[in-house]
Simulated assay, not measured.
Amino acid sequence: MHFDATFFAFVGLILFFVLIAYLKVPGMMAKGLDERANKISNELAEAKRLREEAQQLLTEYQRKRKDAESEAASIVAAAEREAAMLTAEAKQKTEEYVARRTLITEQKIAQAEAEAVQAVRAAAVDLAISAAEKVIATRNDTATQSALFAQAIGDVKTRLN
């Protein structure tokens, strides 16, 4: 019998398959593939868990952001109300101050007018008295002076009673 190269290649292939079966290569390959599949499934589970955590964190941060925005809006609104109150209060105080200053100024003006009128009257009275004294001094003699003195005393008595 004559063995050619094909026969030896076939025997080599058979021996190769027997050696692979003897060394349990298919089991090791299956075990390696199973381990890799388990590793991939664990990584997928971990990725899913991390995604859920990230989603929860995102939801929590969005809620916190909304809370912070609403709190900021309420702070701004309160500040605006307070600013409006302070502005109104300052305006009212300014108006009251202006009204008081105007009243005081009007009172001072009225007092100055009254003092000016009194000063003019006093000057007019002094001028009238001095003019009357000059006229009386030039026209009166002792008899007229006595009569005027008596008349003045009578006028004073009637006014006092």
Rank of each mutant, 00 (worst) to 15 (best):
I129P: 00
E60D: 14
V11H: 01
R49F: 06
Y61L: 11
Q111V: 05
A21I: 09
K24F: 12
D155L: 15
K31W: 13
A123V: 01
E43T: 06
A54C: 03
A110L: 09
M28Y: 12
S130R: 12
E113D: 04
V125D: 11
D126N: 03
A90F: 10
I109M: 07
Q118Y: 02
Y22T: 11
R49N: 02
K157Y: 09
T158D: 11
A47D: 02
T142V: 11
S70F: 10
Q62A: 05
F16S: 12
R121Y: 08
K108I: 06
Q111W: 03
A37E: 08
A122F: 02
E43P: 01
D141M: 02
F10M: 09
E53W: 02
E46N: 10
L160K: 14
M85W: 08
L13G: 08
A132H: 08
F10W: 13
A21K: 11
L50F: 08
K108D: 02
F7I: 06
A128K: 14
S41L: 05
K39T: 06
S41M: 08
F7M: 11
Q151C: 03
N161Y: 10
I104P: 01
K108R: 07
E46V: 12
S146A: 09
V117N: 07
Y22N: 08
D126W: 01
V125R: 13
A9H: 14
Q151V: 13
A73V: 04
V11W: 07
I136P: 00
A137E: 12
E106T: 04
E133S: 10
Y97V: 14
K39N: 03
Q92P: 00
S130P: 00
N38P: 02
A131E: 09
E95I: 14
K64R: 14
E89Q: 12
A119P: 00
A152I: 15
Q92A: 14
E133R: 08
N38Y: 09
S146R: 12
Q111M: 02
A30F: 13
Q56L: 13
A112W: 01
L44P: 01
F16K: 02
A132W: 07
L58N: 11
G154Q: 15
M29R: 06
S146Y: 08
A79N: 08
D126G: 01
N140F: 04
I75T: 12
F149E: 05
Y61A: 10
R81P: 00
F17S: 06
S41F: 03
T87W: 12
E80K: 13
R81K: 08
I136H: 09
E43K: 05
E69Q: 05
A112C: 03
F7P: 00
L23G: 03
L50C: 03
L86Q: 14
V125I: 15
A147P: 00
A72Q: 05
R65G: 03
L23T: 04
D4N: 07
E95G: 01
S74K: 15
A137G: 15
Q151L: 15
V156P: 01
T87Q: 15
F8R: 00
F16Y: 09
H2D: 06
T144E: 02
Q111E: 07
K66F: 09
L86D: 05
G154E: 15
F10E: 04
E52M: 11
L148T: 04
V18N: 05
A99D: 03
I109K: 13
S74T: 12
G32K: 13
R36C: 01
P26E: 04
E69M: 06
